[in-house]
Design a protein around this nucleic acid. Structure first.
Lengths: 161, 161
DNA sequence: CGCTGATTTCACAAATTTGTGAAGCTTCGG
DNA sequence: CCGAAGCTTCACAAATTTGTGAAATCAGCG
């Protein structure tokens, strides 16, 4: 019995937190996979283990990890002499995910800018869109600062430890 | 002809930007409605006008505005002596939407905290979750500051104007 | 080199989401 | 009160999304 802890509780947690991520836009299987891996002490699971723990088919696991590797959240590995792949998650994948939210700010901003063009910059509607553009530009600038401060914060903490 | 501008261009913009919002999790019709209203100089449209401009059924419009009023993005109004409802969007609904992202940070944070409990705080996995909790708590604190600075920024700009 | 276990791919089934048409309800004007 | 405009509700159809089983493909080992 390699895991003396209450797998029941962990399984329930995985499902609950996965739902939170799903609500934030991540595909269901992908969320479950990422969290299941993160919840192991070794930080790694094989495809078969994932299928078992998630009660999902190998096909579903395959699709999920394909997505996750493409967006750079998990990495595929294989022990030499083994036929089993194992997967690990980036230790800071949640951080990365948030950092990439930055790109949605860019999309909103660009979209609104199109709006100014579409309705004309010298119209009430145009001015309304322009205001929003300003807000998103501001946000984007601030985001950088926030992440920098986090880096500093974390560096300070780990150095101290 | 109440709108001398190129409705073709505006319509296209509405659809494009709506897709951006959809990708961020807002229902399709709701996105289209909110943007269509925002793109008018008066900042208001009747249900019938919405149905026409969006090439959607009255039923779809009805469902969309129900959602939007529930989340507080649009308001329903009626001229006295008219049978037509008209809808307006909050001038700062995009700001509000971003501000409410704060609540997803809370959910992530809470979810991760559950994770610490589930796997045990004195395990490698537990420590991993705890680190992430710290990050999200940090973010939440920063978010407040950012929005405050925006308020100050905007107040300064409007005062100056 | 072929055997075998592991993973991926493909066609399809189940579940969700989204929008429609038609009927029903509400409310204003006479 | 009655007629009709306008909105909402309901049952259903179309389109998407998600996951499955089974066959195909790939990789290590003898």
């Amino acid at each position: 019995m390699p895991d003396p802890r209450d797998t029941q509780v962990i399984e329930q947690f995985v499902e609950r937190f996965a739902q939170v991520l799903v609500d934030s836009g991540m595909p269901r299987i992908a969320s479950r996979i990422a969290i299941a891996i993160m919840a192991t002490d070794e930080g790694r699971l094989t495809a078969a283990e994932l299928a078992e723990r998630l009660h999902a088919s190998p096909a579903a696991v395959s699709g999920g990890v394909r997505y996750l590797t493409q967006v750079g959240i998990v990495h595929r590995g294989r022990e030499r002499g083994s036929r089993r792949d194992h997967f690990t998650v980036e230790h800071d994948w949640l951080y990365q995910t948030i950092a990439q939210r930055d790109s949605i700010l860019v999309r909103w901003s660009a979209g609104l800018r199109e709006g100014v063009q579409a309705v004309g910059g010298d119209t009430p509607a145009g001015r309304r869109f322009a205001e929003s553009v300003e807000f998103f530009e501001f946000l984007r600038g601030e985001m950088e600062g926030v992440l920098d401060r986090w880096e500093a914060h974390r560096r300070a903490a780990t150095t101290r430890a």
